[in-house]
């Protein structure tokens, strides 16, 4: 495999895990615009544990993932006191605080960043992405996943159905934090270098776009969104500097044509073999979103 191809594949897998980290909270109705902060925690966590503390990768990556999960758990309590656009701002602020903290911490190399000597190869990254994808599909199939989706639709009605709203939201933030952290840890060991400037708000916006453009209704959404966002800019390289324009137009078109994301439940329903080969057209599946 060429270096270019394997590098692109690694970015795709890391982006996919990162996108699932944001998707898990989005599926439960919460927008997390602090993704880069969680990813930075995972990246710096493993960087410090492996480069400074000399621990093996097999320990530092899971440990960094758990640290990000713990931070996700803790930060969910103040964040969940806010709603709507204020929640977006609160998570955004969290991301900025993490980046600012890292930039001013000599332990983490400050603005110089950290070199991460321990390298991990592509197969390990692919396996991680597959595991996270399967875990997310599994989660969305469970009753907990059903409760999460119900919160996204109508929180008040979900309360009256007996759903423990706060517990479900905290769980979503914790799992989301873990996935973002894992993506950061893999990034650190794959690129051998971390710097706080990389984990900026633009990164948080991009990963949120992966999810929103791909579709936050099903676990297929982030998969399609990550593919779209990772591969389209690469394909557009042929077109030179015009690619940014084309890419931007493509995003706008997606938002206009598929406001709920590329993959919706409705699309999956129509594409399901049951529906395609069913003699009796399902009653009441008429109006589409």
């Amino acid at each position: 495999m060429s270096g270019y191809l394997s590098a692109t594949l690694a970015i795709l897998c890391i982006n996919l895990i990162f996108a699932y980290g944001i998707f898990v909270t989005a599926a439960a109705g919460q927008i997390n615009l602090g993704g880069a902060g969680f990813q930075a925690i995972g990246a710096y966590g493993t960087a410090w544990l492996s480069a400074s503390a000399g621990l093996p990768v097999s320990f530092s990556i899971p440990a960094a993932t758990l640290i990000a999960a713990l931070i996700g758990f803790l930060i969910s309590f103040p964040v969940l006191r806010t709603r709507g656009v204020y929640m977006v701002l609160a998570t955004f602020a969290f991301g900025e605080v993490v980046a600012g903290f890292l930039l001013r911490s000599p332990v983490f190399g400050g603005a110089m960043g950290m070199v991460v000597p321990a390298h991990i190869e592509l197969p390990a990254i692919i396996v991680s992405a597959v595991v996270v994808t399967l875990l997310t599909f599994y989660l969305m199939a469970t009753r907990l996943g059903l409760a999460m989706r119900s919160l996204n639709d109508d929180e008040e009605a979900a309360i009256v159905m007996g759903v423990n709203v706060r517990a479900v939201q905290v769980a979503a933030f914790t799992i989301g934090g873990a996935f973002c952290g894992l993506s950061g840890a893999l990034y650190a060991h794959n690129f051998a270098f971390v710097e706080a400037q990389y984990f900026n708000s633009l990164l948080s916006i991009y990963v949120l776009l992966f999810v929103l453009i791909g579709g936050a209704q099903t676990a297929w959404g982030p998969l399609v969104g990550s593919l779209f966002f990772t591969l389209l800019p690469e394909l557009l390289r042929i077109g030179g500097s015009a690619r940014y324009v084309v890419f931007g137009v493509a995003i706008v078109l997606m938002m206009m044509l598929r406001p709920e994301g590329i993959v919706t439940r409705d699309l999956l329903r129509r594409l399901s073999p049951r529906q395609l080969f069913n003699r009796r057209p399902a009653s009441g599946s008429a109006p589409r979103d």
Binding site: R143, L146, R149, S150, D153, D154, E156, A157, M161, Q217
Partner: peptide, 14 residues
């Protein structure tokens, strides 16, 4: 107040 993105059976199972 049915959940619009859940199917009939998912709403009932909720």
């Amino acid at each position: 107040r049915l959940m619009p993105h859940l199917s009939v059976i998912e709403n009932i199972m909720l």
